[in-house]
Design a protein around this nucleic acid. Structure first.
Lengths: 229, 229
DNA sequence: CGACGCATTGACAGGGCTCAATTTAAGTGG
DNA sequence: CCACTTAAATTGAGCCCTGTCAATGCGTCG
């Protein structure tokens, strides 16, 4: 795998801080345990706390009336969410739900203001992370407009793989419960099309998949396909 | 018109600064004049300068191979672009082209760093503007996924209207050269569909349109339509 | 073991893209 | 001011991708 270092910028909220500072900051928040599917916050609510994932994963999505859903991104260990909304005293622009069992640290606004005032690096990192996400969603916006469904599914799977993949003997396992519906919501299609597409890829030996479980057996083929159809 | 104050957050780069500071900052950059269609920077280039529009308008878009284009947003007077990319020493993630005759102020990275160091409000405003744009593109991403073409065209037209509309006797004039292709690139469809749609709306008396020129005669009807189809 | 939820597969239809042919309107230069 | 050029816009026809609906299969967990 070559794709790791360029996309998955390892910068997190604590980049450039001493370990002891990081430990103190973590201690200043309090931990929250989320069962699978449990919402942490809902879009439109006033943003009271921001979060960092310790273990597990959050799914950030935007909901449309009549139940359609677009997944904005997944938030894994050491990544934060809602930081900027809280800092700016906004409303949450998205909904966050736990995927599988998830442990997070939460800070309220007062604590956050205090932390940012005392650690200038935090503000800089916030800015950097936000820029990162802006560019990501802009790129996916273009792709949604431009590319065929199967290509988008391939890109979605590769993105999730880079974020949550784990090497195994069979290939790279997507290390989170990922249903056909989830992949559809992430790539902008329906669960039916995802199912058909995965079946086709399975016949070609590119992936092996089961219930909420996908293994990418041939990432290289998938990358080629995602780039030129 | 009611929609002006809630969407069009008037926060710009200089919010909270004294007029004299603003004048000094403007003087520290140098002005650039762009003819219609002229690119100011291209996506992928190293970000050397950031810009603020004085007069005219920039079109920010993302290009896909085989010539397809997605318009990310328009940048009007007093608005900035590329500030964050320059500050972070990134590459431009988008392409900027002048729409009509356009005058901008440009600052290079060294000047920017200096300005931000001396004016803390600038960094805060940057953060705020970026958050604004992140939420905008996320919303449009969801709409692109969820809504029918005509609804998206309506939303696109309304957004552009709020940004660049001018009251006239006939209704609200879109005060920039806006072709069917532009509107298509902004709403995620083709120029043919836009043309057909505008024709239909013209029959209903909602808009009047000509060559690169649109007047929204009945904004209220358009809003209703954009919200419930 | 039974039931619930996820996944698969087929059939079908329709929204909107593509392509092609005109029509209209804005410049441009003599 | 008019002929000419060029680019934008309009309109029609056809079709294909992909969403929708329905029925069935299957794996997991209580």
């Amino acid at each position: 795998m070559t794709t790791h270092m360029d996309m998955d910028n390892p910068l997190d909220l604590f980049e450039g801080l001493e370990d002891q500072d990081k430990a103190a900051i973590l201690k200043s928040g309090h931990t929250v345990h989320c069962r699978p599917g449990q919402p942490l916050f809902n879009q439109g609510d006033p943003a009271k706390r921001c979060f960092m994932v310790i273990r597990g994963r959050l799914k950030l999505s935007k909901l449309h009336e009549q139940g359609k859903e677009a997944i904005i991104r997944y938030i894994g260990p050491d990544e934060t969410t809602a930081a900027l909304a809280v800092f700016k005293g906004r409303r949450y622009p998205v909904t966050a739900r736990a995927v599988g069992d998830t442990l997070v640290v939460a800070w309220d606004k007062a604590t956050m203001d205090h932390l940012i005032a005392n650690h200038p690096a935090l503000a800089r990192n916030l800015l950097h992370m936000t820029l990162e996400r802006l560019e990501d969603i802009q790129t996916r916006y273009l792709e949604l407009r431009t590319e065929m469904v199967e290509q988008r599914i391939a890109r979605a799977l590769l993105r999730i793989m880079q974020h949550a993949g784990r090497r195994t003997d069979d290939g790279i396992l997507i290390n989170l419960p990922l249903s056909r519906q989830d992949l559809a919501d992430y790539s902008g299609t329906t669960l039916y099309t995802v199912s058909r597409t995965l079946s086709a890829w399975e016949k070609r030996g590119w992936v092996r998949s089961g219930r909420e479980r996908i293994v990418v057996a041939d990432p290289h083929a998938l990358v080629l396909f995602s780039e030129k159809g």
